[in-house]
Amino acid sequence: MTSAIEAGTTPDIIMEGPERLVANWGAKGKMIDLSDLWTEEAKADIDANSTAVGKASMGSDGKYYEYPLAMTTHTMAINYEVFEKADALQYLDLENRTWTTENFQKAMQALKDDGVAVTGIVYCGGQGGDQGTRALAMNLFSASFTNPEHTLYTMDSEAGIKGLQLLADMVKDGLLEADAGIAAGDELQLFANGTAQMTWAWNASNAANYAASVTFTPYAMAFPSDDGVPELAGGIWGFGIFDNKDEAKVAAAKKFIKFVSDDSVQGPASVYATGFFPVRASFGDIYAGTEKDANKEFLIFMPYLGDYYNVTPNWAVQRTEWWNLLQRIFAGEDVQTAVATYANNVNIK
């Protein structure tokens, strides 16, 4: 897309997330304002599901650069049978799919005592699946990744440092592994082939992709948090229109987006094709009675959808700095010093 933008050969319509449509291309004047698509009816319907979606779709100039279609929460998953054998399921709230930080530590100890070699791997070899390691570190002591205004990255808070310190300590104690040689794709493979007993990069799409290849029950869980109330990272996908200086095409593109996203028949069918969940509350459960019925497992996590902080300025720099921060911490650098370097590199002065 970068090449296309510079060459002036962008498509009219693109499906992407707010971090690019809104915070990057929209903020740089490349996108068309879609405010007219956000009718009162659409706002009310989407807000009824999550107010984070509307906030994320709007730029700092008050214009909407995304018209959202589907969303999901990114969770983690455990190997159910291995946890059961180690008697570690007692530390999980299976009804709500949550666990506390304290119980998470106890569960890891139970796995280790049961002879499990690799419980979970805190991957930090690249930015792939970094939402998982961010959610893990944040939730342990309920830290916020950014301030509410999305102008500052705040993992240098006391709660953020405590979470990262706990991860470093757990790695040191052999309760977790850390690996700067892999990213989420590799970690998912290791989870799927039974080497690792947890993955931090789970969602409905990955569950569907790995369903046929795993020989155990991948059990989706929220990330552990000190208060037992997790805040999960979300994925929001929707449409944007590039400003190609053609009014007729813009009008046609808007009409197309409206049909694909809002039509009572096509809208749910479009969401179904993504494998995620509708941003519109009125679409209801689109997977009931279909071959993707298993997706409903993830509906339970929707109330845990947290702030969509990916629209904070300097996001691309932050993504690289995050896994570099983890690499420094797991290489033995003092957590406070490493986090201070991270905060200095990502926050625009």
């Binding site: 970068t2 930090c124 070899g125 690249g126 930015q127 700067a180 040689g181 990213a183 690289t320 896994w323 570099n324 690499q327 420094r328 290489a331």
Partner: peptide
Amino acid sequence: TSGGPNNATNTIMYNIYYHAF
């Protein structure tokens, strides 16, 4: 490696790609 760990395998070409793209 994406240039890691801790920039141990970062090269000029990768750095150009990172900054430009």
